[in-house]
Amino acid sequence: MNSDIRTVMWKEARSLFRQRGSRIRALLTLLTPVAFFAVYSPWSAGPDWATDPLSIIAAVITPMLIVTLIIPDSIAGERERHTLPTLLASRLPDRAILFGKAVFSLLIAWGVTLLTLLLALVTVNLTHWSGKVLVYAPTVLVAGVSLSFLTAAMTSGIGVFISLRASTVQEAQQLLAAFVLGPITLLGPVVLIVSQTTDLDLIDRITRVDGELLLASALTALVIIDGLLAFLAMRRFRRSRLIES
């Protein structure tokens, strides 16, 4: 099984960097969020970047953006380009195809996010040098590494379901982006509006929440969601269903 998963990942890697014949396009697609979160954001935030939740937001959004680009192309793209029936007629097991694609997108997204966080630290140190090397606060580091992995896995799992239903790559990418990035995009304005128009003062409440407890809760929730998505994806990703759909 592992060698079959590696085989699928080998093909995915070759395909990603040959997207429509352009390595530059693929690299630009991957590097756009990197440029934003590794250069612009830390430059603007200054030394607070290493201790602020802003870097954690980058660790959550970056893998979402990258998986949103990769997984629809990997799954809905096989159907759109008529390569899926031949793949299903090969000896590769259903789960090797599923996990090869999902794990590939997860690893690329996680790897790029870790690279982004590292580069962001370099940016902060270069642009706001204070005489000593600035490093991430332990909680921020743990949150960045673990949340980015689990968020990539969650986006990948949701992406599998959306891609299996979508008829084109574009449709799958748009739906996935709306599904995972939409709530995050809306969260800030909603909190702001609720705080300003009611007596709840959500911003104050959020800043008073124990960060470590919040992180532990988020990690637990993501582990459960990821496990559930993996289980459901294994049930859904079956040859007979894929051929008949």
Binding site: W10, S15, G21, R81, H82, T83, S90, R91
Partner: peptide
Amino acid sequence: GALLEHTGLYEQLTAEENLEFYGRAYR
């Protein structure tokens, strides 16, 4: 082996890579 309604070839890959992938798939 199967050649179905569509060729099932990955157009962004080379001819050799297409065969290489399926060679790996068949171990």
